[in-house]
């Protein structure tokens, strides 16, 4: 008799999932090995325990990715892939997939393809894990034409709309670049200079994309809901969401503070120990002296000024980020 876990991994649905998720894992391995080489060169100059700790990171990420692959967790696989891709980028590796020097464009394209294959594989993974070792007695029937239409609709609409919006954004950015000369001087020169910078271009792209999403959310989505959702269904959905919030508040109030407190305490102790290890106990204790002895700190005018400017800057960044997030995520 075959062991149940073997049944889980050898079912047809599991095989489809593995086939669909394999590209993401291969990409993770490529980025991981690239990271090991790049990070090795970077941290070699630092030396010591820190180099060892940083050197472990790519291997840890790789192990997590393999586990996610084997445990039917494509979300974790995608997260590790995003992390590895980001690390590859920030460590200055321009190496494309499989060692080519094609830059980030192709790599990112392959990452997106790999990610979507893994995500589509998830429903097969669910089928494999839910029906593991059990005999399925199911029956489905329907007109083939509608079936093809339904699948096409589900696959095609998001892809076509996305490509369409990207083309629209690209066209608007292009038009802005070309039409900026119509503005009177010196506005025309300022705008032209602004759009030639990366930040300016990014702002326009994000602004147009944000406007598109906002329009979709404000007009198209309510229209879809108006024609598809009945009053009772809407009430049911709303009550379901309220119930979810109620449960989360309840668990927040009763249980969650204990693990978060414990994590905070452990993190505090870890920071102090690490600081003492690298800076010495004397420095750490003298730095904490004012806190421990309740003596008030009297900063110099220059220090007070610096703190005030830092506060202002932080407030501005927060406002900017809030605006961007509100625009994008609603």
């Amino acid at each position: 008799m075959r062991a149940p876990f073997l049944g889980l991994y050898s079912s047809r649905q599991a095989r489809i999932y593995f086939a669909l998720s394999a590209p993401a894992l291969v990409l993770e391995v490529v980025f991981g090995t690239g990271l090991v080489l790049n990070l090795g060169a970077v941290v070699a100059s630092v030396g010591g325990d820190l180099a060892l700790a940083v050197g472990v990171v790519p291997w840890a990420v790789l192990i997590v990715a393999v586990l996610a692959f084997l445990r039917f967790r494509p979300s974790l696989l995608v997260a590790t892939l995003a992390f590895s891709f980001f690390l590859s980028a920030v460590t200055g590796s321009q190496t494309g997939p499989l060692g080519t020097q094609s830059g980030f464009g192709l790599s990112a394209g392959l990452v997106v393809v790999g990610v979507f294959c893994a995500l589509i594989g998830f429903s097969y993974a669910r089928g494999a894990s839910l029906g593991a070792g059990r005999e399925l007695i199911t029956e489905s029937q329907g007109p083939v034409g509608f079936q093809v239409f339904g699948v096409g609709l589900e696959f095609g609409i998001p892809l076509l709309v996305t490509l369409g919006v990207i083309a629209l954004v690209s066209a608007i950015v292009g038009a802005a670049n070309s039409e900026v000369n119509l503005l009177p001087q010196p506005l025309s020169t300022i705008s032209s200079l602004y759009l030639s910078t990366r930040m300016g271009l990014a702002s326009v792209v994000i602004l147009v994309a944000g406007l598109t999403i906002w329009t979709t959310r404000e007009f198209l989505e309510p229209a879809i809901l108006y024609y598809t959702l009945t009053y009772d269904e809407a009430i049911d959905q709303a009550l379901g969401e309220v119930e979810d919030v109620r449960k989360s508040i309840r668990s927040e109030g009763k249980v969650r503070w204990i693990p978060s407190l414990a994590v905070s305490e452990v993190a505090l102790v870890a920071i102090i120990v690490l600081a003492a290890h690298y800076m010495g106990w004397g420095t750490v204790l003298s730095g904490m002296n004012s806190v421990l002895t309740f003596h008030s700190i009297s900063p110099t005018p220059a220090e007070a000024n610096l703190v005030g400017r830092a506060d202002q800057l932080e407030a501005q960044i927060q406002y900017l980020l809030n605006t961007v997030f509100r625009m994008l995520w609603g």
Partner: peptide, 12 residues
């Protein structure tokens, strides 16, 4: 189970 209920069809 994971089912695909066809359009204009049924599953059991």
């Amino acid at each position: 189970d994971v089912l695909n209920i066809p359009a204009k069809g049924f599953s059991r």
